[in-house]
Simulated assay, not measured.
Amino acid sequence: MKTVAGRFGGFVSSVVLTLSALPVAASDWANGMFADRTHDFGSVARAAKTEHVFEFVNATGKPVHVSSVRASCGCTTPVVLDETVAPGETGRIKAQFNTRSFLGQRGATITVVFDRPQYGEAQLRVDGYVRRDVVCDPGEIEFGAVKIGAKAEATVDIQYAGRSDWRILEARSNVPGLAVSFEEATRVNGRVGYRLIANFTPEAAGYINGEIELETNDGNHRRVPIVVTGSAVEAVSVSPSPLAFSPVAAGGSDAKKLVVKGDRPFRIVGANASDPRIAVELSDELRPLHLLPVTFTADEATGAIEFSIELQTDDAEIGTITVRGTADVTSP
């Protein structure tokens, strides 16, 4: 028996060492896909929407699949936003902080489990302090879809219980086009109420994912963040954009259909193209959807060109619609 143990003891030890090293190697490649693996929410109000999205880039050269996520504490709920991520693409894991059921200093480790292209685990960490003395109603500002140039308003009631001299000193936001103001509503026996007013006038299309930061005179927890979400949308959409003509031989022509869609009926009353070789056929009908034939007629000049078309409407809010495009004239 001693002879058997002597013959296989080194082999067994080698296997044990190799297996014990596997989780470390698996975690290394998985962790390496995340540029940031920790996030501190700071001090947040009770019932406030509090979440953070961790992003990872798939640099493995093969599709990556997230099989599961788990958190070490019920104070945080992890959500897989992208289960399968192609090579070179970005995946997202969202961490939602439960500010309704948990108070005080909280933290959680999130384990992200991958099963393709091989097994691996990534460890993420979130921490934060959920205040007992500040409540925001609602817990976030959600504007929904707001048209560019239009104005949307939202309010948040902020209640504080504690010091009688507690005050909001400043309100600032990282969302372009968002103006924030506040006013004191109540102050009785250590209970203080404020109303926050947020006016949003978007200038460019896109999604909104930012926050309003309240600066208070509380020496321990001066900052109170409020999440702001929504989207800014065009009153009119144009497709295709840009408008690209197929290559045209000198003296030839190409025609495309331009789709102009609004959220209400309107007329297109005029069209001016920056290049005289562009012709737009208009209809004077009042409708929310317009299909405009656009023709490019090439002359003898060859080469690539860029152009713009300005469509005048009878709607003051929609105004002038600018369409950009390209064309290429080749030798016959």
Rank of each mutant, 00 (worst) to 15 (best):
F56N: 03
L292C: 04
V135R: 04
F143R: 02
Y119W: 12
S241A: 14
G230L: 07
A327I: 05
V53C: 03
R132K: 12
I278W: 00
A95C: 04
I110K: 02
V329S: 05
S27F: 13
A47M: 13
V188D: 14
P247F: 10
D263L: 15
P87K: 08
F56L: 10
R195K: 12
P240I: 12
I110N: 04
L169F: 09
V53N: 09
A255D: 12
S274G: 09
D275W: 04
A71T: 14
F114G: 00
T76Y: 03
E153Y: 07
A244E: 09
T201W: 09
V188H: 09
T50S: 10
I278C: 01
H290F: 00
A249W: 12
G42N: 05
T295N: 06
W166S: 02
V323W: 06
D157Q: 13
G10I: 00
D157N: 10
A26F: 14
G303F: 02
V233T: 11
L282P: 04
F8R: 01
G190K: 05
T76W: 07
F56S: 03
Y207A: 15
R195Q: 07
R70D: 09
N189L: 15
T295A: 06
S72L: 05
R106Q: 08
N189P: 02
R195Y: 01
P138N: 02
K257P: 02
S14M: 08
S231E: 15
